[in-house]
Design a protein around this nucleic acid. Structure first.
Length: 101
DNA sequence: CGCGTGACCTCTG
DNA sequence: CCAGAGGCCACGC
């Protein structure tokens, strides 16, 4: 599977994330055919200008915001969508998409 | 072609 | 919970 294809899959999956829900890099990578979490992170980092993707709904597997400069903005956006964080800065596990243990 | 780096993940202690 | 080790793939130098 070519990288552009994987990129398309990543964009598609992220676009399918419902509002108020979140998912992890690993999950997205697992949904794609062969992509790795690093590729997902790279895709989010090199996002196009006219992107409409809910990148803020993509978090780390530990249910914490990834370590990047836009973490504050991401936190804001998620909070604005109704996503609640606990005192440890973690997202409620039942908000994870597609599953919600 | 090798090396370092990165919005990461999983497994062990 | 934190730290370390190994693995993953693409990019720039």
């Amino acid at each position: 599977m070519s990288r552009p294809e994987l990129l398309e899959q990543i964009y598609t999956i992220v676009d399918q994330i419902p509002a108020g829900r979140v998912t992890t890099y690993g999950r997205i990578a697992a949904m794609t055919d062969g992509a790795t979490p690093r590729m997902v992170g790279s895709a989010m980092r090199h996002l196009p200008e006219g992107h409409q993707l809910p990148w803020h709904r993509v978090i780390a597997a530990s249910l914490t915001l990834a370590d990047h400069g836009g973490a504050e903005r991401q936190h804001q956006k998620l909070r604005d969508e109704g996503v609640m964080f606990d005192s440890k800065g973690r997202v409620s596990a039942h908000l994870v998409w597609p599953d919600g243990t």
